[in-house]
């Protein structure tokens, strides 16, 4: 699958790169769905990498697990969802030492949330590698009720918590791992444009 090229945007919007092997004796890779492809490409660049690597993978209905397992990482975990994997991620980071290299691949929601865990554990955001693959759906926070709506693919969208019609901003909070959604019809109640698919 080819990589999606996000349009240039404002300074708070994350910019994703391409994973590359870095020095270090321990490596943690967290990916979901098509993010597996980025890990497969990364592994192909350094034959010694996988023996030092812990992969945490959430397939989201894809079938990359066997290919990842075939890389023979030191540890491999397949989780049914990100939420189900969080405690494991926290434990791995809590036990880790300086020098750990973190690689994140897949959807923005997965990368944002996992980065938040790694930053809280003491790794600076700029030292964490990311590569976007797969869905361009966004994790959105409603600025009004603070509720998070996952996998938003249209603009505007309806807040899954308070029901307000929100427009999708590019303003992004690493701490919340979410973009900002703001009421679209505050100045003209009821005048809500037809939802349009993101990036169309």
């Amino acid at each position: 699958m080819s990589k999606f090229q996000f349009p240039e945007s404002i300074a708070s919007r994350p910019v994703y790169g391409t994973l590359e092997p870095r020095p270090g004796k321990a490596h943690l890779m967290i990916a979901d769905a098509e993010g597996a492809e980025a890990i497969l490409e990364l592994a192909s660049q350094d034959a010694a990498l996988m023996a030092k690597t812990h992969i945490i993978y959430i397939p989201k209905g894809t079938d990359f697990s066997e290919k990842l397992r075939a890389l023979k990482p030191a540890q491999f975990y397949e989780g049914p969802s990100y939420d189900a994997s969080v405690q494991r991620i926290q434990k791995v980071l809590g036990d880790a030492h300086m020098g750990l290299q973190v690689y994140l691949a897949g959807t923005e929601g997965l990368m944002g949330q996992a980065m938040n865990e790694a930053v809280s554990a003491g790794i600076p955001a700029s030292a964490i590698q990311t590569e976007h693959r797969g869905s361009v759906a966004r994790r959105m926070q409603c600025v009004h009720c603070k509720g998070i709506t996952e996998d938003v693919v249209t603009d505007p969208f309806v807040c899954s918590h308070c029901g307000l019609n929100l427009f999708v901003r590019d303003h992004y909070s690493r701490r919340l791992a979410a973009f900002q959604g703001v009421c679209i019809d505050a100045e003209d109640p009821g005048n809500v444009p037809e939802p349009v698919e993101l990036y169309k």
Binding site: A11, S12, R169, H171, R174
Partner: peptide, 13 residues
């Protein structure tokens, strides 16, 4: 929303 952001990020909009 902006807490934790750097100078360029919170001025992004």
């Amino acid at each position: 929303f902006d807490i934790g952001m750097n100078f360029f990020e919170w001025h992004a909009p």
